[in-house]
Structures are given as structure tokens and as C-alpha cells.
Design a protein around this nucleic acid. Structure first.
Lengths: 215, 215
DNA sequence: GTCTATAACTGGATAGAC
DNA sequence: GTCTATCCAGTTATAGAC
């Protein structure tokens, strides 16, 4: 029997620590030393397992990207099945957003850190284009195709911009900056993802309908 | 006659360079040396004029914040005047967004860099809460008050979340990451602010109306 | 206001022992 | 796989000359 050499607790601990720190401080605000310290491992180990800092960043980002893609694709297939292949805009957008809430509400800190890192990446001019494109655009295109079906005769440019606005609302939510806590004087909370998504769905649906349905 | 000692071309050049680099790489991704090099000045000069790197960052951010606040406040007062003190949701949101497009469309690179820096700050868990709160929340509260008038009986929590979604859509737009260019296969462009805002206004208006008007 | 020089430190990366 | 030791490039910040 061959030993499972791919199983390395310390390797995962490095990714966990990197995830949390990259989410909070971005690529340049994090040192390999701070990651190693948080992970409780030696500095040289990060280099042994992942090579350059840049590669560690991408490995951290890609680890959960595929899982998220799979869950979201399942959610889309599910609503398509239920609606005999033609779900409404609201069902599509709910399928797009709900997997994130559900993963968030598991309470697993890893996912919460990952989502904040995702917000950093999506909002970054350096990482946003390439990494988001290769990781998520195939899935997003699948969702856009569903939206085109739900919005017959939709103008393609308007559809793209509407997705962009949804992506922005989602991104700022995932960033959990605490600003809404201050602005609302304690009434709302960045950490309250359930409420954030509950209202985000009808907000986005109304936006898509208003902008994409020609007058 | 007293000489105007506050006029210092090199001082402004440092702020211009800092603005551009902070927008692209964030606080930690920029060195004082790279700022000085881009500004064409000596490294020590940044320290002479602004003190610590942290203070330079804040000075860069604050330089245009007051101007933006003033323009936006004028825009709000204008629509309030035109509507005898009770503008519609659409007029309020347009007043909130249009000053940004107009400043952007002047073509002055400084404003474009500043808006990208604003996106970085608003999306950052480190800077987002404090700096956005002190710089912009007074004005935002003024806009929220106008929206409350335009949406009688509005639920406060929903109003706050709707503003948050609008802020997210705006933030990702200002970041100009180029992702929409890739996703839309060249149909849309991050740099096309005019179109971005043209659709953002009805998108947000529809969202506010759907979420904030009780069923 | 501006620049030279440098102090004091931190960073990524790796060679080589175990 | 893991850790020690180290290299050295790059960083902030400042003291002091002009």
C-alpha cells in the first residue's frame, strides 16, 4: 500500500493562516513570517510546500474556488430542474447567492476568511482580472446564459453591467469592513450575512428587471 | 506681503504619485521610494512634507475627499431645490452618482486614480471603517435623510442595506479592475464610466423601491 | 526646501543539516 | 518533511549638510 504523501496537516495550516491574513491585509500586507507564525510552523515550510509567495497566494485562492464552483453549479442545476429548464430571474440569483450564505453560516472560519479574500481579489486591479477570470468566469457564464433565457430579448451590454453591479454588492458584503455598522449606528452588522443576502436578492432582481427589460 | 509658502509643486507631485500607486497596489504594495521616483523627487521629501507613510496615505485620501463632498452636497441641494424639498429616489441617487462621473469625465488622471484609491479604501477591512466614516458618512447621512423623505415609512434596516449594495456596485465600478472586459469578451469596458453609471442609476433605484417599500 | 548618507530593520528566498 | 542559519536586497525613517 502506498502511503498518502499528499496528507500534510502543516500544509493545510499554512493555507488556513495565509487565507486569514491575505483576506485582511492583501498580498503585500502579509509576510511569509507572519503566516508561518500564525500557522505554528517554520518559515521555510511555506517555501517548501508552495514555492514563491505569489504561488502560495494563488494556491490559497484556488483551494476553495473549485468547491464554491461545484456548490453553485449544483444550485443552478437544481433550480433549472425544478423549473423545467427555465427558472425565473429571482431563482437564478438566489441560486447564485445562497451557496455563499450557507457556507458562511456553517460558522467555519475558513470560509469566512476565504470570502473576505475573494472580495480583496475581485476588487483588486492587480489580481481581479486574471484570477477571477480563470477561477469563476466559466461558472458565471453559465449563470448569465440562464439569465438570458429568463430575460428574453435582453440587451447583452445591460446584462453584463447588471451582473457587475450584483458582483459589486456581493463583494463589498463579503469584505465585511464594518462600515455599515458605523453608518447605521449599530443597527446593521457586516457579520450578519443572513440579512445581507436576504435583501440583496430582491434588490438585484429588481435591478436586473428594470435595466434589462427594454421599455 | 507674505510669500505663499504653502505652494509647493513637489509636494503636490508627491500626492499625485502616491494617489496613483496606492490606488493600484494598496498601502502595503507601495514604497516611499516608488512614490518619490514617480514624482521625480528625492525620497526624503515625502517624509519632510507628510511625516510617516501612514500619514501620507491619509493626506492623499483626504485631499480630494472634501472636494467630492462639496460637489455632491451641491448636487443634493440642487435637486432638493428643484423638487421643492422632496426629490424622488431617482433624483437623489442620480445626484449621488453623477458628480463622480463628471469628475471622471474631465479626463484628469488624478480623479481617476483617486476613485480607484477610494475603491481600495472602501473595500478594505483595515481602512474601510475609520477612514470612510470620518470622510464621507456625514454626507451619506444627508443623502439617507433625503431618501427617507422620498420613501415614507421606509424600514431603516432595509434602507441601510440598500445603500450598502449601491456602495458596493459603485466601489467595484471605481476599482476598474478590467474584469467586465474579460467576462463580456470585449463588449463592455471598465473604463467606460458613462455607461457604467447610466445603468447603475436605474438598477439602484429599482432595488431601493423593491426592498424599501413594504409589501 | 532639498538632498546625501546612513542607521536600523524586515523581507523573501534558499542551502544544507537532520 | 522539517528546521537552522544565513544571504542580501530592499525598507522606513532620520540626522545633518547645503
Amino acid at each position: 500500500m502506498v502511503a498518502d504523501t499528499s496528507y500534510t496537516p502543516k500544509r493545510e495550516r499554512i493555507l488556513d493562516a495565509a487565507e486569514e491574513l491575505f483576506a485582511l491585509h492583501g498580498f503585500d500586507g502579509v509576510t511569509l513570517r507572519s503566516i508561518a507564525k500564525k500557522a505554528g510552523v517554520d518559515v521555510a515550510l511555506a517555501n517548501y510546500h508552495f514555492g514563491k509567495k505569489n504561488d502560495l497566494f494563488q494556491a490559497t485562492f484556488l483551494r476553495r474556488a473549485q468547491i464554491l464552483n461545484d456548490v453553485r453549479m449544483q444550485a443552478l442545476l437544481e433550480v433549472e430542474r425544478e423549473a423545467q429548464g427555465k427558472p425565473a430571474v429571482e431563482e437564478i440569483i438566489a441560486a447564485f447567492l445562497r451557496p455563499i450564505v450557507q457556507l458562511h453560516l456553517t460558522g467555519e472560519p475558513g470560509w469566512q476568511h476565504y470570502f473576505a479574500m475573494l472580495a480583496y481579489v475581485n476588487n483588486s486591479a492587480v489580481w481581479g482580472e486574471g484570477l477571477m477570470h480563470s477561477s469563476f468566469d466559466p461558472l458565471v457564464n453559465r449563470y448569465l446564459a440562464a439569465l438570458r433565457k429568463a430575460l428574453p430579448g435582453v440587451d447583452e451590454e445591460r446584462l453584463q453591467w447588471c451582473y457587475h453591479y450584483l458582483s459589486g454588492a456581493l463583494t463589498l458584503t463579503l469584505a465585511q469592513t464594518g462600515r455599515i455598522d458605523r453608518l447605521s449606528d449599530g443597527l446593521c452588522h457586516s457579520a450578519d450575512m443572513a440579512t445581507a443576502f436576504e435583501h440583496m436578492i430582491p434588490f438585484a432582481v429588481a435591478g436586473f428587471q428594470r435595466v434589462c427589460v427594454q421599455p
